[in-house]
């Protein structure tokens, strides 16, 4: 675990969370905003694999659970993002991921992430919400995340990929 990479991941998560709570609500559709933090975690998983991504996902999730105005039980986003990081990390291939692969991973991650969060809410009776309404939110969130994918994913993947492994020379063309 490279300290620099962890720091870059943390900064990316904080910036994403700031934009998500203060900028995107002004563009939101019925309060559903793009889940930028999830996109950062997916980018980390696709470039760095599950080991790094689950740790980043857990940290990012705990932040999402605790930073105001969050009012749900702590640990719910943490669990959702750990699962997302794991799944997206397993999608990582031996070669540079193709565009359809990245889009499919984001779609799957967004669906799984919001769903896991919603399901923990149902189990723990945290907010009592109807299932149809949950599906609506999950669908809108999925569309938002896909819309933001072309902007966020290439940027974040280049960022995570640009930090060399410890002791490994960067291969130049």
């Amino acid at each position: 675990m490279n300290a620099l990479r962890a720091l870059v991941g943390l900064v990316a998560v904080v910036v994403a969370l700031g934009l998500q709570t203060s900028l995107f609500p002004h563009l939101a559709w019925n309060g559903v905003v793009p889940n930028l933090v999830l996109l950062v975690v997916v980018a980390a998983a696709l470039t760095r694999g599950p080991q790094f991504a689950v740790l980043l996902g857990f940290t990012a999730g705990v932040l999402m659970d605790l930073v105001p105005p969050a009012d749900h039980l702590a640990g719910r986003w943490a669990l959702a993002l750990v699962v997302v990081a794991w799944i997206a990390g397993r999608m990582r291939s031996e070669t540079r991921p193709s565009v359809p692969m990245v889009v499919a991973t984001v779609a799957a991650s967004s669906f799984v992430g919001t769903s896991v969060f919603a399901l923990t809410g149902l189990l723990l009776r945290d907010p009592a919400i109807g299932v149809t309404e949950m599906l609506g939110v999950i669908a809108v969130a999925l569309v938002w995340d896909l819309v933001l994918t072309p902007v966020v994913l290439p940027l974040m993947m280049r960022l995570f990929d640009g930090i060399p492994e410890r002791g490994a020379e960067r291969v130049r063309i």
Binding site: P50, V54, L55, F58, G75, R76, A78, V82, E165, R170
Partner: peptide, 25 residues
């Protein structure tokens, strides 16, 4: 440089973090 060393999937980390999340909840 995704797969320089094929790492063993970190199942133990995953389980630890899932349990940590559940504990928090």
């Amino acid at each position: 440089r995704g797969f320089e060393q094929r790492q063993q999937p970190p199942r133990s980390t995953l389980i630890a973090l899932v349990l940590a999340s559940a504990t928090l909840m």
